Structures are given as C-alpha cells and as structure tokens.
Computed example of a mutant assay.
Amino acid sequence: MKLVADWLTDPATVTIMTLLTQDGHGAWFVGGCVRNALLGRGVEDIDIATDLRPDDVMALAQAAGIKAVPTGIAHGTVTLIVDHRPFEVTTLRRDVATDGRRATIAFTDHVDEDAARRDFTINALYAQADGTVLDPTGEGLADIQARRLRFIGDPRDRITEDYLRILRFFRFHAWYADPIAGIDSEGLAACAALADGLGQLSRERVGAEIKKLLGAPDPAPVVAAMAQAGILARTLPGAMARMLPILIAFEDAPPDPIRRLAALGDVEVAAGLRLANAEITRLSILRDGMSSATPPDALAYLHGADIAWDIVVLRASQFETPVDPTVRALIARGASAVFPVKPADLMPRLSGAALGQALKTLEARWIASSFTLGRAELLSRLPQSE
C-alpha cells in the first residue's frame, strides 16, 4: 500500500527525506501523518523516524545549511526547519525501562523495535519517502481499515509504560474509531483496572488530553464509557455526563471543549485540569449563565454573541428543550447595542465612585429595558441623590 498525499512531494519534505536517506540510511514518516493520510484527513505535523543518531542528524543538517534545533536530543529528537516548517526527526528507539511517566530509551536500527514501544496499532505505521507503508506490528493497516483502536500487544503493558495512555485511549477512540463498533473491551478493562496510575500524571497533561477529547466531533459515547470505567470520576470529580449528548445534538457551532466542559460541570469540577485563566473565566461565565435568568440579548451585550449563544444552547440542553429560533435575532441586537449615556453626561455633577455607580445603575436599567430606553429618558430617571 502507498500513501497518496500532497505533503509527500512537497519540496520541504523531499529535502528532509533526501538529507536523511543519503549513504544508505533509512528514514520513515511515522505516526499521525501516516495515520491521517490513510484516513483521508488533514496532516498538520510531519514526524520522521531515522536510523541516524541525533548528532549525525545535526551534523548533516549543518552541512546542508538546514537549521537544526536539539529539541529533545537526549531522547533522540532533533527538529529540522525547512521553508519555515518544522520537522521532528527522531532516532529509532526501544524502551529500556519505564516508570509510568518517563522512559529510559536506547537507540536501535530496527523499525519493529521502535514500533513496539508505541501506544496503538494505528499509530505504529511507517511510510518510506515514496509513500510505501510499513506495518511492523502486522495489525495497524487492518485496524485503520476497520477504524478500530487497539493497544499494541498487552494493553496493561502499554499503560504501565505511560499512564497518560489511558486518556489517549479514549481521546483517540473519539477521533478515529468507528463509534458504532464500540470501544475495545480488552483495552477498556485495562484502563479501568489501572486507573490509579492517573494520579502520577501532571494536571497539565490531564487537562490537555481532556480538552483534545472534548474537541472531537462527538465525544459523548466515549465520555459515557469513561464514566462507566471510573475514569471520569478521577479526572473530573463530580462531573455529570448526562447533558453532554443533548448539548452535542443541539450544537450548531464547531466543537468547543470549554462549552462541553460546562455541560459536565462547573469550575470546581475542572479544578484538576489546570486550565488557562481565560478558559476558567469563560467556564465560569457559561456556568453562571446556565443558572441565571439573564435574557439572551443582555448576555450578548455583556459577554458577546458567541458566549451568549453557548449559554442559550447549554440552557436548552439542561432542560432538554429546543432552542427558540428567535434567539439569534435577540443575540444579534444585544451584541450590537451601544449604551447611550457617557460619563460626560453626568459631569461635573458627579465624579469618582458616585459617577461610576450612577453609570452602572443607568446601564442596568437600560439593559432591563431590552435597550429601548434612550439617553434623555435614562438621564431623566436618575434620582437626585445620585
């Protein structure tokens, strides 16, 4: 079997592969770029495996005038940059020892040893410069064709090498497996049995995996499986999966992990994910909006059209009621509304804290009127004490 993909013949890719295969050395595309090309999906990153040692890769690149960055040279990885594009080049490796988070590796000249240390059969496919696909495990191509996600060899062995693979198992299933076929039972049982190992992972790693999972087209069946296996309770304590499939059915916007996280729980539920401050703020707004009676136009004025729509859809999912089709117009009106009173309208009569409070009071009245009160009417309603 051969890959057919534009990136195979891209001049930058050809330059890298020509560099790495001179003097009889081997270089192979590996992992996600091969998997996605076989599935007909887009490829963002091109990873390459080679039998060259990292120092040799650096030396060859320097001699050819190619920028080389030793991004992980102790583990065999050098990033080569051609036409402003990065290519991760990693020496073939085998694991010597693992502790559930990190591996001690040794370099090898054998592709099958490199494949054996990877996680899933569909991620252990290699391709030569001309696109010829290699399947060292003997199972990757069949699993790609069946859209089946399976660990390489014994799932327990793969998981104890790196406990992050528990979460990757669910994330990759949501993105690449056939949802009708269901989750591999052997892999699911191993994840459930070894779930205690998740405690060894950093919150950053867990958070990154959960967000990638929730960004899949429809992660609801996988999240339900995580709940059944006890994985959800360990990563999102207190999360409730019931609302997620309803939200996904109601969505008419691109998948958004924070919107979907709001369907699972509040900021406390997501505390173990180490979200960015902006993500925490947005999650808080969404959850507060779900429990408030603030109308859609006011939400749009206060938070913008996108967040207002997210709250409307979350509310509808919460009560399992369809979204009112007139809401879009309300949100558009709120998002474009401009408060007609300026600070200068109240000066010099008011200043400082009193001025700020008066502006807040008038703005609240204006919002409550669905933006119908004009400047003159608002100013006339300002009590003398203000």
Rank of each mutant, 00 (worst) to 15 (best):
P11H: 08
A12M: 09
L19N: 12
L20R: 13
L20M: 06
Q22I: 11
Q22P: 14
D23N: 14
D23M: 07
F29A: 08
C33G: 02
L38T: 02
L38I: 00
G40L: 05
G42V: 08
V43S: 07
D45W: 09
D45C: 04
D45R: 02
I46K: 06
I48H: 07
T50V: 07
M58Q: 10
M58L: 14
A59H: 10
L60W: 09
L60G: 07
A63D: 13
A64E: 14
A64Y: 06
A68F: 12
V69I: 13
G72K: 06
I73R: 12
A74I: 03
H75W: 08
T79L: 05
R85V: 15
V89A: 11
T91Q: 09
V96H: 11
T98H: 13
D99A: 02
A103R: 15
T104W: 11
I105K: 01
V111N: 00
D114I: 07
A116Q: 12
A116L: 10
N123M: 00
A124N: 03
Y126E: 04
A127N: 07
L141H: 02
A142Q: 08
I144N: 06
Q145F: 02
A146P: 02
L149S: 02
R158F: 01
E161W: 12
D162V: 01
L167V: 13
A177H: 00
D178K: 03
A181R: 09
I183D: 03
C191A: 15
C191K: 06
A195L: 01
G197H: 03
L201K: 00
S202Y: 06
V206T: 12
I210H: 01
K212N: 14
P219A: 10
V223R: 05
A225C: 03
Q228C: 03
L232T: 00
L236F: 06
P237G: 09
G238K: 02
M240H: 14
A241V: 00
R242V: 10
R242Q: 14
A249I: 03
D252R: 15
A253I: 09
P254M: 11
D256R: 00
P257D: 09
P257M: 11
R259E: 14
R260G: 01
A262N: 09
G265P: 05
V269F: 04
G272Y: 12
R274G: 11
N277T: 13
T281C: 03
S292K: 09
P296V: 02
D297L: 11
A298E: 13
L299S: 11
H303A: 05
A305V: 01
I307P: 11
A308S: 11
W309Y: 08
V312L: 05
V313D: 04
V313L: 14
L314M: 08
S317H: 01
T321W: 07
P325A: 10
A329G: 02
L330Y: 08
I331P: 04
A332K: 13
R333T: 13
F339L: 04
P340Q: 06
V341W: 04
M347V: 07
P348V: 12
L350T: 03
G352F: 08
A354H: 14
G356P: 08
Q357G: 11
K360R: 15
K360I: 05
T361E: 14
T361W: 15
L362Y: 04
L373T: 05
R375V: 10
L378R: 05
L379A: 10
S380Q: 14
R381P: 00
R381C: 11
S385P: 04
E386T: 08
E386M: 12
